[in-house]
Deep mutational scan, measured.
Amino acid sequence: RVIAMPSVRKYAREKGVDIRLVQGTGKNGRVLKEDIDAWLA
């Protein structure tokens, strides 16, 4: 299970990103909004 705040999950869904593919850089591997942006870049 991916650790991410609900707002980040929603952001990823809106961008069409599968959050399971994104490498989290936050505490304990948490996926941050910046990680979604970096994955899209």
Rank of each mutant, 00 (worst) to 15 (best):
L32E: 10
I36G: 00
V22P: 03
K15Y: 08
E34L: 14
N28H: 13
E34P: 08
K33R: 12
D37Y: 05
W39M: 08
I19E: 02
S7M: 10
K33W: 07
K33Q: 08
A12Y: 01
G29N: 10
V31N: 00
G29Q: 07
I19Q: 01
I36Y: 00
A38W: 09
V31D: 00
R20T: 12
L40W: 07
L32A: 05
L21R: 11
D37E: 07
I3R: 12
L21P: 02
G24H: 04
A38Y: 12
G29Y: 07
W39N: 04
Y11S: 02
N28W: 15
S7K: 13
K15T: 08
R20L: 09
A12Q: 01
D35T: 01
L40I: 15
D35M: 01
G16V: 04
R1H: 14
W39K: 05
I36H: 00
V2S: 07
Y11P: 01
R20P: 02
S7G: 11
Y11G: 01
E14N: 11
A38I: 13
I3E: 08
V2Q: 09
W39R: 05
I19K: 00
L40F: 08
I36Q: 00
T25M: 05
M5W: 12
K33Y: 07
D37L: 06
R9E: 06
N28I: 05
E34N: 12
P6I: 13
L32D: 05
S7H: 10
E14M: 15
R13S: 10
G29D: 06
A41L: 14
V2N: 08
Y11C: 04
R30V: 08
D35A: 01
I36W: 00
A41W: 15
P6D: 10
A12F: 01
G16P: 00
E14T: 11
K15D: 01
K27T: 13
V31E: 00
W39P: 01
R13Y: 14
E34R: 15
M5T: 15
V2H: 07
M5S: 10
A41C: 12
I3H: 06
T25S: 11
I36T: 00
W39F: 13
Y11A: 03
L21T: 09
L32P: 00
I3T: 09
R1N: 15
L21S: 10
V22G: 01
L40E: 05
K15I: 07
E34H: 15
K27M: 13
R9N: 05
D18N: 13
V22Q: 01
V8N: 03
K33M: 12
A4N: 05
P6F: 06
P6G: 11
A12R: 00
V31F: 01
K33G: 04
V17G: 01
R13H: 12
I3G: 06
V31A: 03
K33N: 06
G16R: 08
R9H: 11
A38R: 12
V31Y: 02
E34F: 14
R9W: 15
V31S: 01
E14L: 15
G26D: 03
L40T: 07
L21Y: 14
M5D: 09
A38E: 13
G16C: 07
R1I: 15
K15R: 12
Q23F: 15
P6T: 14
D37N: 10
R30F: 09
N28T: 06
G26H: 03
A4M: 04
G24V: 03
K33T: 08
L32C: 07
K10E: 09
G26Y: 02
P6A: 14
A12D: 01
K15W: 10
V17H: 00
Q23E: 11
V31Q: 02
Q23P: 14
R30A: 13
K27N: 11
E34K: 15
I3S: 09
V8G: 02
V17K: 00
V17F: 02
A12P: 01
V22L: 09
A38D: 12
A41N: 13
N28R: 12
D18H: 05
I19W: 09
K27P: 13
I36V: 12
R13G: 08
V2L: 08
Q23L: 15
D37G: 03
K33H: 09
W39Y: 15
A38P: 01
R9T: 07
V31H: 02
L40P: 04
V2A: 08
A41Y: 15
R1K: 14
A4R: 04
R13P: 00
D37Q: 07
V22D: 00
R13V: 11
K33E: 06
W39V: 07
V22Y: 01
W39E: 04
T25C: 04
R1W: 03
L32Y: 10
G26A: 05
G16Y: 08
I36D: 00
V22M: 06
I19H: 02
G16H: 10
R1V: 14
S7L: 10
P6M: 14
A4I: 08
Y11H: 05
A38Q: 12
R9F: 15
V17M: 04
G16M: 11
V31G: 00
I19V: 07
M5Y: 15
A4H: 06
M5N: 12
E34G: 13
R30I: 10
G24Y: 03
Y11D: 02
E14P: 00
L40Q: 05
E34Q: 15
L40K: 06
L40M: 11
K27Q: 11
D18K: 06
G16F: 08
L32T: 12
G16A: 06
D37A: 05
I3M: 05
D37P: 00
P6H: 14
A12S: 06
E14Y: 13
K10V: 08
V2K: 09
R13K: 10
R1Y: 04
D35L: 01
D37F: 04
M5V: 12
D37K: 06
Q23A: 11
R20I: 08
G24M: 03
D18Q: 07
K27W: 13
A12T: 01
L21V: 15
W39A: 06
K10M: 09
R13T: 14
W39D: 02
R20F: 12
V8P: 02
D18I: 06
A38T: 15
D18F: 05
G29T: 04
R30Q: 11
V22E: 00
I19P: 03
N28A: 13
V2G: 07
W39H: 08
K10G: 05
K27C: 08
V22T: 04
K27H: 09
T25V: 03
K33F: 10
A38G: 09
Q23D: 09
D18P: 11
M5E: 13
G24K: 03
I3D: 09
R20K: 14
V31R: 03
Q23S: 13
Y11R: 03
K10D: 07
V17T: 03
L40H: 06
R20N: 12
D35W: 00
D18V: 05
D35V: 01
G24N: 03
G29F: 08
G29V: 02
A4F: 02
V17P: 00
V31L: 06
A4L: 04
R1M: 10
L21Q: 11
W39L: 08
D18M: 06
G26Q: 02
G26S: 04
V17W: 01
Q23I: 15
S7Q: 10
K27E: 11
A12G: 04
A38V: 11
A41D: 12
L21C: 08
A12I: 01
N28V: 05
P6C: 11
L21W: 11
K15A: 08
A4K: 04
K27S: 11
Q23G: 09
N28S: 10
R1Q: 13
N28F: 15
T25E: 03
A4W: 02
I3Y: 04
R13F: 11
R20M: 10
P6Q: 11
R9L: 13
V8W: 02
D37S: 05
K15Q: 12
R20A: 11
L32I: 10
R20D: 09
N28L: 14
K15L: 13
T25Q: 05
D35N: 07
G26K: 03
L40G: 05
V31M: 03
V2R: 08
A41T: 14
